[in-house]
Design a protein around this nucleic acid. Structure first.
Lengths: 261, 261
DNA sequence: GAGTGGTCTAGACCACCCT
DNA sequence: GGGTGGTCTAGACCACTCC
């Protein structure tokens, strides 16, 4: 059994503290007990407590500063990684019913962009699929995803009714471990407009994402276009750990300056 | 002297490894030496090496998996936290000349939204300022920022020619330690359009941001609107640490369902 | 089964905040 | 100066990957 969930000690402690914070046990702007006190309380070493607190710090739940107790921050309801990557899980988590359908699919050689993103050899085949995603029957997003052949074989064999690709992949032992996201704005093309039911040229929020497995091997490369007003992306970062970056937008209409112009 | 920079050991090691990776010392998709080997190499304990590697892992530079050596990931050029928060620093980092001017400023009681974001008492005064930001003389963003009074006093005393608020705050000992960002899409209002030189109603990429100091006290609350094509936001996250969240867009003006019990 | 990263411990010293 | 978090050490054992 792969799924032998039994959280390790520091995660249990972290979960407990997270919940305590959420339950307002220390008050907003309140202070946590000292690490040593927590170590006694949970019967673990200080090192383990520090591992727990590192999690909370990265999540933006508490501060950390030499010399003073940790302070409870606003606790933005963080989604776990699985919810972030899976449209279906996210939809359920926010109380909506996820839906969608495959609009078009192709087996074909990778484009230069796909080669780069999925780290493939030139001409390597990919499985590419265009899906329309709905939230409680309301179209909110079009998704264009390329998978390397091995993964694509699994995905393309999926029943058309299946909603969650992510969950399918998991059942086949493919673990999504890391993702890079780029968020910007594009104008709806004819195809987008038709599917989303919006005028051609109307603005859409675009998320491009490359996801890799624990070994660093790319598993999917996706471009998602959201109808405005349906989603926002939020993130937390801190001096200690920066995950967010602001970059100059990639100017050209299509992909990177690459081969084209 | 506040700025007694002298990186601690694990950061030195991390910087060294980061550079080695960037210099392609291990090849793309290559493997790092084992933790023990690195510990010997750098003459530190394994614990210290692990601290260094944790940094790189959070940055998305390497993977980590039980049982195998760490694998070098695509290395997205990460900006440090300072560059992320400061328009001026960012501009310089991407080779542009930062500019801008104060369009309007107000000293007034906080709006309900500002109260919440800056954790102020009702009617507490804020300093609010509207700036137009330029990249090499080209308007790219309008920024509407509210500061709590204490901070505002510093900012409002700033020479109108000064470009970097962030650097000013730093010189006064205010450290920006944590930030929450929300990214979505809005349509240009009359004021935006006039300043940015775009049509009213044209789409803009919006970043709302609350920044706090190391004690968790809010320092600024800002809404920035970017002309499309000028920026993109990119981020990295992993199973180990999630900083990014996708949320339903905030539809109503105010009001959170907040189950009060 | 050897190699490797993940977890945990117990203790040490230091840098910093606060009173 | 006492309390607290940040850094570092040295060792232990376990879980997993890969040969």
């Amino acid at each position: 059994m792969t799924g032998s969930r039994e959280p390790v000690r520091y995660r249990q402690v972290a979960a407990d503290l997270r919940q305590a914070v959420a339950a307002d046990a220390y008050g907003p702007g309140g202070r946590l007990p000292s690490e040593e006190a927590l170590a006694r309380q949970y019967q673990v070493s200080r090192g383990t407590i520090r591992q727990s607190l590192a999690l909370l710090r990265h999540e933006g739940v508490v501060t950390s500063r030499r010399g003073t107790r940790r302070v409870v921050l606003e606790s933005p309801p963080l989604q776990d990684f699985a919810e972030l990557l899976s449209f279906s899980r996210w939809a359920r988590a926010v109380g909506e019913r996820p839906g969608g359908r495959v609009v078009r699919e192709e087996h074909r050689p990778a484009t230069p962009e796909e080669q780069r993103q999925l780290r493939l050899e030139p001409q390597a085949p990919v499985y590419w699929v265009l899906r329309l995603r709905t939230l409680t029957d309301c179209p909110v997003m079009v998704e264009r995803t390329a998978y390397p052949q091995a993964v694509g074989a699994l995905v393309s064999g999926m029943p058309p009714e299946a909603v969650s690709v992510t969950e399918l992949l998991e059942r086949h032992g493919i673990v999504l471990a890391d993702a890079d996201h780029t968020i910007d704005l594009v104008l709806a093309e004819a195809e987008d407009a038709e599917l989303l039911g919006c005028p051609v040229g109307s603005p859409l929020l675009r998320e491009r994402r490359r996801t890799t497995d624990p070994a660093g091997v790319p598993v999917e490369w996706s471009e998602d276009r959201y109808l405005p007003g349906t989603v926002a992306f939020t993130m937390h970062n801190s001096l200690a750990s920066t995950a967010l970056t602001r970059s100059r937008a990639t100017v050209p209409a299509e992909a990177e300056p690459e081969a084209g112009s």
